[in-house]
Design a binder for these strands. Structure first.
Lengths: 152, 152
DNA sequence: ATAATGTTGCAACTCAGTATCAAAAAGGGG
DNA sequence: CCCCTTTTTGATACTGAGTTGCAACATTAT
C-alpha cells in the first residue's frame, strides 16, 4: 500500500534550491513553518510562528517568501470566502487539487477531492483552449452540524 | 424560442422593494449601474459611474449597497485571481453559476458554464451534506491567443 | 578570503474596506 | 399634505493587509 503522498519535510527547500535560489536562514525557517502547518494559515499567523523559531524575521520577508513560493507554484493562495477580513491563507500545493468548503455559520473549513472536478478542469482546457495554471474552487454554505442544529 | 433570461432593468430594485427595503435615490442609481454593466466592475469603478448619474453619492454608500446586495444573494463577489490589487469585482447573480477564467498574460476574463460544474455542486451537497449558498470557481492560466503568440 | 549579487529589515506608504455619528430622507398614519 | 419614527446617508477618521525604496547584510561562486 503506497503512502498517501510522502510529505517529506524539507521538500519545499529542496525544490527552491534545485531552482538555483539562495537558501537563507529566514527562508528555511518560513518554509519549515509552511511545511509543518496543520491548518490554513494567513501571513500574520505564519509570521508569528516563524518568529518563535527566529525572532528577527520581519513580516516583509514573510510576504516576499510567500510571493516566491506562489510564483514557483509551490503554495496555493486561498481566500476561504473572506469570512473574516480580506486576508489570504496559504497551503502547500497538493498533488491533486481540492475544493474548499467554508461553513458560513461555524467557520469550519472542509476539503473535498472529486473526479468530477478533475474532469471539469479537463473540459475547460479542451473546450476553451485554456491552459490552466491554478484553480480555486471555494464554496460557502452550511455544514451538516450547522444545518441541523438551529438555523436554515 | 424563450428569451435567454430577460434581464429586465429594474429587476434588482423590484427585488429589494419586495423585501421591504427603502428605495432611496442613491440605491436606485447604484442598482442601475450594476444592472447595466457589461463587464465586471470593482467598487471604485461603480462609484465613478454612479457619480456620473448623481454626483453626491459617496463611496461608503456604494460599499453599503454592495454589502446589501450580497446579503440578499443578488450579486456575486469575485476576486478574478487578484490580478491587480486586492479589490473585488461584482456581477448580478446569474440564473446558472459559471466559471471565471482569467488569462495571466493579457488579463482577459472568460466565463464558462458547464453541466459538469452543476453535477459537481450536486455531488458536494450530497457527499458532504453541505448546503451550498454560494460558489466561486476561478481559474488562472493562459488563453488560446496568449498560449500561441509567444510565451507558453 | 573576496567580490558580485541577491536578500533582509526598517520605515514609510498605498489602497480597499469599515466605524462612528450627526444630518437628511423614506415611508406610514393621521 | 404634514408629522413622526426609523433607516439611510455623507463626511471623516480609522484599520489592516500588503507593497516600496533603500541602505546594510548574507550567500554563493571564485
Amino acid at each position: 500500500m503506497p503512502l498517501p503522498q510522502t510529505e517529506a519535510p524539507g521538500r519545499l527547500q529542496a525544490e527552491l534550491m534545485s531552482r538555483g535560489l539562495r537558501m537563507t536562514h529566514q527562508r528555511r525557517t518560513i518554509l519549515s513553518v509552511v511545511e509543518t502547518a496543520k491548518q490554513h494559515l494567513d501571513a500574520s499567523q505564519l509570521l508569528r510562528r516563524a518568529r518563535r523559531l527566529d525572532p528577527r524575521i520581519d513580516r516583509v520577508t514573510v510576504y516576499r517568501t510567500l510571493a516566491l513560493l506562489k510564483r514557483h507554484g509551490l503554495v496555493d493562495e486561498l481566500d476561504l470566502m473572506h469570512m473574516q477580513g480580506e486576508k489570504h491563507y496559504y497551503e502547500r500545493r497538493p498533488q491533486r487539487d481540492h475544493i474548499h468548503m467554508a461553513c458560513l455559520r461555524c467557520g469550519k473549513i472542509m476539503e473535498f477531492e472529486s473526479d468530477l472536478f478533475d474532469r471539469l478542469k479537463g473540459q475547460i482546457q479542451r473546450d476553451c483552449q485554456f491552459h490552466i495554471v491554478v484553480t480555486r474552487l471555494e464554496v460557502g454554505g452550511y455544514c451538516a452540524q450547522c444545518r441541523t442544529s438551529s438555523s436554515s
